[in-house]
Design a protein around this nucleic acid. Structure first.
Lengths: 341, 341
DNA sequence: ACGATTTTTGCAAGCGCTTACATTTTCTAT
DNA sequence: ATAGAAAATGTAAGCGCTTGCAAAAATCGT
């Protein structure tokens, strides 16, 4: 039995089946356009040769890759995991493949990945948030490939978005905090530079403060990397200020878990001594001790809808419609009434 | 200013710079082979046209993609995250790109992904573990592309491996447990079918039991999915047996965290009432309450070495050398002496 | 049974790039 | 200044596939 020196090609199959390459191609891509007898001959040749079509060649000839790229800021923590999983499942159900890459929260990296993914023939792109340079949007426009922004809804963005309102969501949570009597509030946020989600969450908290006569400008705020350890450090710093906050709102669950850890180390009880809240409602939030009160984001739904939007844009060449998903406050154990003075 | 209808091609650049496509190609891939004046002309044309080479075309012509595929059983939890991150970083440092996909612990899915990745022109593949059908190894061999198995060292595998010894690692941990006086030991494992890591860890525990005169065959063992919730359920089941174990060893940290949660729900103190251990030492292990005693796996080192091995095989057409990395027991708080009867 | 359809198949032109080889230009040494 | 070597560039043949169009085969109505 002769061993092929390299992977079999369409030609090999065609020769073995005694048909033209066009027929083989049709067998694979539009079986109904070829008569049963031929199809069987071809398929058996395919099997015999263990043939797998060369993707690059196919993309080049068809100018379609059935691939959609997703660029997320980080794969390090679970923030994007569930949403992306749903995104990918929905794509798969429609015959598309997802290619992910992470920008490590670096705009230049994101730009490079956009180029890479498009160069690889991606039929569409999923990006996170809206903050990026005009030049990038210009480039995207010139490429004329569908692009959708997720994790942040914005009606007037240059690209359609499938997400939620970060600002009002955080505001809603902050209202609850204030309602519980907290007046000394502090916040730990991700770096807001180039990150509209982070920025809008801060804005949301300030909105609530203002609405309740608190001095939003005096809000103690630390921006740091989205890591558990960073959350811990920020928390310690916040708690060692002369005026200790009674509630620390965190830009996401990862930071909040870090805060919880720091509180434990400092011998502070949550929520009796200090309240802590998160944002996102990732799995970690339930596991945390005490379980985290946080903003629940419909990750799976968002991923699914984003996929659907992209597919729609690709297949019907539509402009795409933005969707604003509702969030809700998930009350667990880390938020309690402000300790009486 | 005319707007191109589609992305610029090499031809466009060549025309604009007044040179041949070959020269443009050289400018991009071997700049030193082109004289400075020409190079600058070309580069400026590239910039003007916002040219990005078409990846598919390049792969096809060069028969190299500088892409390496990785197929992991799951992206759901953090088990593979750190190692993969390091893998990817090392690849990147050498000019390669990583393509990941997950098989959801389904052998057929893995097989399909292998084909997909290879069809996409991957220059090499990273697989997890050694358990797969002979036919798959045959296929792999025929493709003549470098493949490395990670997360499990095995001297006599059909493909080289970069990993650690799951069996002796678990045995070492079990020895500690037994040394602390535990005689009623139970285990929660991942599904061992088709998963050598899971299987070897069970074997490791049994080895230790036998070595200390315990009845390894009577080991209460539950195999379940790698999810926190599954861990909780398994733990509850184990603890409701007539003969309660004093120590529950888990196949990995995720299951162990589930066990910890269940213990809390049942009002059991860990480690006073029952000890729990994990395996992997992912971030979760430190966050868990109590912090998990577990087997520390050198994830980053493993990822790095796997990348290096693959690159070496690709570039020097070597056969690849397996490497066995050491693990150690990370003693934290979830393992304590057996409660006196 | 025969022409008109309708289906099925084949032909061949690319898709955008790399690269062996040929050609031209530049440089070196006399 | 010039032959010869070296460096720079150009020519053109693919890489493996899809697909518009044309040819051949099967099907149909009468």
């Amino acid at each position: 039995m002769p061993r092929p020196k390299a992977a079999a090609t369409l030609d090999d199959v065609a020769r073995k089946a005694g048909v033209s390459t066009a027929t083989v191609s049709r067998c694979l891509n539009a079986p109904e356009r070829v008569v049963k007898a031929t199809r069987e001959k071809v398929m058996s040749a395919v099997r015999d040769l263990d043939y797998t079509p060369n993707f690059a060649a196919r993309v080049m000839a068809a100018k379609r890759s059935f691939t959609i790229g997703a660029i997320i800021p980080t794969m390090d923590n679970a923030i994007f995991a569930r949403g992306l999983q749903a995104f990918q499942e929905e794509l798969h159900a429609h015959g598309y493949t997802m290619l992910v890459s992470s920008s490590a929260y670096r705009p230049e990296a994101e730009e490079e990945q956009i180029r890479t993914l498009l160069a690889r023939g991606a039929d569409g792109l999923l990006l996170i948030g809206h903050d990026r340079e005009t030049a990038v949007y210009d480039y995207l426009e010139r490429q004329m490939k569908p692009v959708v922004a997720a994790w942040s809804y914005r009606a007037d963005g240059r690209i359609p978005s499938v997400g939620f309102d970060n600002r009002t969501s955080m505001r809603a949570l902050a209202e609850e905090v204030i309602k519980l009597g907290h007046r000394n509030i502090a916040m730990i946020s991700g770096i807001s530079q180039g990150n509209d989600r982070a920025r809008l969450r801060i804005d949301g908290l300030r909105d609530a403060m203002r609405a309740h006569g608190l001095d939003a400008d005096a809000l103690p705020l630390i921006e740091t990397r989205y890591e558990i350890e960073s959350g811990s450090e920020a928390f310690s710093e916040l708690m060692s200020a002369p005026q200790r906050p009674s509630a620390v709102l965190c830009g996401n669950d990862v930071l909040a878990v870090g805060a919880l850890l720091a509180a434990r180390r400092m011998g502070l009880r949550v929520p009796q001594d200090v309240s802590v809240t998160g944002f996102d409602d990732i799995e970690l939030a339930q596991i945390a001790q005490p379980a985290l009160t946080t903003v629940h984001v419909p990750h799976r739904e968002m991923g699914r809808r984003a996929a659907l939007a992209l597919i729609e844009m690709i297949e019907s060449e539509g402009k795409g419609t933005s969707v604003n998903l509702p969030t809700f406050i998930e009350m667990r154990d880390s938020l309690g009434p402000s300790p009486s003075r």
